[in-house]
Amino acid sequence: MSETKNIMIVGVGGQGTLLTSRILGGIILTAGYDVKLSEVHGMAQRGGSVVTFVRYGEKVSEPIVEEGQADVLIAFERLEALRYAHFLKPDGALIINDQRMDPITVVTGAAQYPENIIENLSKTYKVYSIDASAEALKLGNARVFNNIVLGLAAQHMDFSKEDWLKVIENTVPPKTIEINQKAFLVGLEYK
């Protein structure tokens, strides 16, 4: 791989984007690449819009993914997918968790939650969406939705299923390994 790969994870503070970036970092190291990750801490984590950048390749220089550069954009929420879609390369993959979380500006009536986000984004980008929360509930644990989304994103990356499962095993709390691996496979096998 000569070019650096750029991945972004976006969502709402508290949705567990940091766990996803840890798993991603783990799998990249397993493959022996250089890697840089950049994340948001502090005030922005309190229910605000959050972004994590992951870059890997032979030698990575800057730690951020810039507009027009992302190969894969993983969005844990529809509105956040819309907010950051312009970071994608023209042929980049946009992975969307089909979930709506109203920001306070919508709750108070100061703004409207946009309609038909996924349909509209599909006109410009290659969109792959999943209702991961519903799928997670089927597994009996609403909190593992982010590994379902990651599984869907993994369809657009070049790492083996075995490596993914191994890294999940090494990253999540021991009691939750099985359910998180199951969740990941739901996403990986989703069509």
Partner: peptide, 30 residues
């Protein structure tokens, strides 16, 4: 950013997609 250099120093037209106009999502008390 690197894009800042591409635009200002290298005078490249980056031809970027415009960001969508979306409601802000400011941080909140939990």
């Amino acid at each position: 950013s690197a894009n800042l250099l591409r635009e200002v120093v290298l005078k490249q037209d980056l031809n970027l997609n415009k960001p969508a106009e979306v409601p802000a999502r400011p941080p909140l008390l939990c």
